[in-house]
Amino acid sequence: MPKITYVQQDGEAVTADALPLMTLMETALMGGVDGIIGTCGGICSCATCHVWVAPEWVDRLPPMGQEEADMIEGLVHRRPESRLGCQVQVDEALDGLVVRVPPAE
């Protein structure tokens, strides 16, 4: 199972194992990560699963779709390495991925 590490706002790093087909958002809920809310359950309409991807990982993630880009555009804490956790499906290639949880909007 791929392991994903989430660095919370309080600085604590939480590592969670992704089950098959899970997204970064779903994996975060499984690991009880603070600050990843997942209000809309993954239909790309709340942006409460916003993460900053560690720079060395940005290009290794599947590319961003237009809907995700539009949602991120509206975020105060957006950065070039921003992604919505619900739009990134985890697979073995992402084992070891590190993301940071931005401040709440």
């Binding site: 809920l29 997942g38 209000t39 809309c40 359950g41 993954g42 239909i43 309409s45 709340c46 409460t48």
Partner: peptide, 15 residues
């Protein structure tokens, strides 16, 4: 952020 559609993995798919 209301819970009218629930939340988490089971949040309303048709919201």
């Amino acid at each position: 952020d209301h819970l009218g559609f629930g939340g988490g993995l089971h949040a309303c798919l048709g919201a």
